[in-house]
Write a protein that binds this DNA or RNA. Sequence first.
RNA 1: CGGGAUGUAGCGUAGCCCGGUUAUCGCGCCUGGUUUGGGACCAGGAGGUCGCAAGUUCGAAUCUUGCCAUCCCGACCA
Length: 492
Amino acid sequence: MSKEITTRAADYSQWYNDLVIKGGLADYSAVRGCMVIKPYGFALWENMRDQLDKMFKETGHVNAYFPLFVPKSLFEAEEKNAEGFAKECAVVTHYRLKNDPDNKGKLMVDPEAKLEEELVVRPTSEAIIWSTYKDWIQSYRDLPLLINQWANVVRWEMRTRLFLRTTEFLWQEGHTAHATQQEAVEETIKMLNVYADFVEEYMALPVIKGVKTASERFAGAEDTYCIEALMQDGKALQAGTSHFLGQNFAKAFDVQFLNKENKQEYVWATSWGVSTRLIGALIMAHSDDQGLILPPRIAPVQVVIVPIYKGEDSKAPIHEKVNAIMKELKEAGIRVLYDDSDASRPGWKFAEHELKGVPIRLAIGLRDMENNVVELARRDTKEKKTISMDGLTHYIVQLLAEIQQNIYNKALAFRTENTREANSWEEFLRMLDETPGFISAHWDGTEETEEKIKEASKATIRCIPLDNVVAEGVCIFSGKPSKQRVLFARAY
RNA sequence: CGGGAUGUAGCGUAGCCCGGUUAUCGCGCCUGGUUUGGGACCAGGAGGUCGCAAGUUCGAAUCUUGCCAUCCCGACCA
């Protein structure tokens, strides 16, 4: 049929694209590098967003919204940050179009409408936010300032991929200001933990918490913490970052506060973000050759009910029964969809909802009603069984939790199997090609070696895990002494 | 941004090399009917600026040039 998807073994990239497009999550758009997020994909994002938003608020944060445009002079104030993003910035230079006198019916940029100062379309909002914080912060009593914003940003990437890297993407960015270094560092770690908890508990995706090396650090940060996840093709994906910004932005934007001793001090800052990229991680971590597999806790539809008719007469009683089941499921807080469309037959619906990753499917026909049972199929294991209608809601509530856990366990087992220790350069290279995944290996701690390893192997240091044990060894590349193993992988 | 490939109805495609009536087929879509426990069947029907724009030509889906978009591989990156 037209909805067949490429298998992972045949072409992993194409498999991923097929799931995104045919699973109804997103579509290509008329704009290079930008995608349309379709209702089903956006519902998924909304579920993720709502949960994260709740967790941010539980940790004392509030939402605000800052402008899309950043005056160039503000943008360049924090030098390292500006430099880091400079080559991927979209820039607004004019504010008006006019009719093209040489080309009827066409428009042209009006050369008379050139902006005095160019506006950078935000690749991130530190600059505009810190220029604002300057006015908001005077005393230690104004601190901490704990603000998050849900926004779109633009980064002009060379090569784009649906959800994983698009020119425009949706994200949240938290920007906090603190009176002490310690408090800011604690905030950085706290939000890293919020991300890890969210990704593990809601997206059923195990992550490694770690700190980035200097070369992988966010431009303008003192330290960048991250959560790293492993995809089914053995490539790593950075799922979220939390930055300790020190006083870099406070100094660049002159944000000082009066402390209890009546002395001026620069504030300490953090920023942290996750994006729609998480959806890409979700797809690549869990799904199979039949389609998406979505964890129940964030799936737009948790249970789909497909009626099995036997002639017109059976429709009414089935509808009646299904409505009763739906009412109960909804009361239990379950997102349920009744697919009673006459346009397609049951078999087609089964395949369609499997492609879309709906965790549980119920099929109900007259035969089932006579026996007071329902056919239940779970997406994660493809297991199908007949269960009693009595206590159905309770059963489903428990099963959803079990599916959530099972998906997590599977991903965790995969990551465990595909995390290896390499003790020599040859072994390291062989692993990357033959059994791709995380590779734990000794590194001498220098940027030069890191760069050489990257050049020679295409693998990067994903992070120095936070729970790393200190263990002496020798660097796999340079042979120099090393204090600990770090986590390498080829990455998205 | 470099290399490679692609673009014909919502999707998948034939035709293009070698220009010539009304652009092929399947799926999907619409109408009616029969159906419905793993991607139904019959009958009828609608749907196309052949990616866009110039050019060559009596005539362009087909030849030329430019542009746009997508995919794959690099460099860059969340």
